[in-house]
């Protein structure tokens, strides 16, 4: 609110006309406010930290969080800037390269470098995209260099990866977000006939991708997850934490399996979904 508005005497009728620009500015303000108080990728936290947020709220949520606490070691918060799905995926994917064996690293490296051709195949202008691709590859190579060290220090290494993701105002992880958005877009464009019928409001796949997939900060829906897991032949399990009491109030898990055959799968990524937002979940067995 400007000082001018604050000093305006009350009693004047308030304008009810809100322009598109004001709505956009407000949305941006909400995202910026979130950005100021939440890092791009947070530390690993126990689920009890989440419980305290809902303690005085919905009992359904509380019961579900208790159940999650029994099954999962913890979670990592991601900033709710509209890119949370892509950033959470990138972090968890690279983290699995960090803690996995050589085969896992090699598969992830191969999947990532294969994306270049996928982008070229749909006719994207490489000059506009190469920086983002290069920085994403650089991020993975940073992970690869650290792997030689003892894996008992896995938590420390993850923390270093986290620093890579948040350093320089998140330049590297933003590049990874942009790159993965383009990968998902390329997949949908290449398979437009299969997916366009499910997009009610879209007139063409090109338009849908430009507006909803490539646009930085646009929230992700199921189709984004399907496209990315198919393009990278990876598995994402989405654990739904919502107010639904269906399924006896148990937490439901939706698997997105983009692999063609199970033998060359990379480790599944588990994300915690709360309406409108994704964080990363960690199983009790693997850190």
């Amino acid at each position: 609110m400007t000082s001018e508005q604050q000093t305006t005497p009350t009693g004047k009728e308030a304008s009810v006309d809100v322009s598109d620009e004001q709505i956009l500015a407000f949305e941006q303000e909400v995202k910026d406010a979130e950005a100021r108080e939440r890092p791009l990728i947070g530390e690993l936290e126990p689920l009890s930290a989440l419980y305290s947020e809902y303690e005085r709220g919905s009992p359904v949520f509380c019961e579900k969080i208790k159940a999650l606490d029994r099954e999962y070691q913890g979670f990592r918060r991601c900033r709710g800037d509209g890119n949370c799905f892509f950033r959470a995926f990138a972090f968890a994917w690279f983290e699995s390269a960090l803690s996995g064996d050589d085969t896992t690293l090699e598969r992830i490296r191969q999947r990532l470098t294969a994306t270049k051709q996928q982008l070229l195949d749909v006719g994207f202008d490489w000059v506009a995209l190469e920086d983002f691709y290069d920085m994403t590859v650089e991020l993975l190579e940073m992970v690869a260099r650290q792997r030689g060290q003892t894996l008992t220090e896995a938590a420390t290494l993850s923390n270093e990866l986290r620093l890579g993701f948040v350093s320089e105002q998140g330049v590297y992880s933003n590049a990874a977000v942009v790159h993965l958005r383009m990968v998902a877009s390329a997949y949908l464009r290449a398979h437009a006939d299969d997916y366009l019928p499910f997009l009610e409001l879209a007139t063409s796949m090109d338009q849908y991708c430009a507006q909803h997939v490539e646009a930085f900060g646009r929230e992700s829906e199921e189709i984004h997850i399907i496209a990315l897991t198919k393009a990278l032949r990876s598995i994402v399990n989405v654990v739904y934490l919502d107010g639904s009491t269906a399924n006896d109030g148990r937490v439901s898990v939706h698997p997105f399996d983009g692999t063609e055959n199970a033998t060359d799968a990379t480790p599944a990524i588990t994300l915690l979904y709360r309406p409108g937002h994704y964080d990363i979940l960690y199983n009790r067995t693997a850190a």
Partner: peptide
Amino acid sequence: LCLDILQNRWSPTYDVAA
């Protein structure tokens, strides 16, 4: 200007030429 790519449809892949 009122142009979507300068507002809510921005992608970092747009450069000055675009």
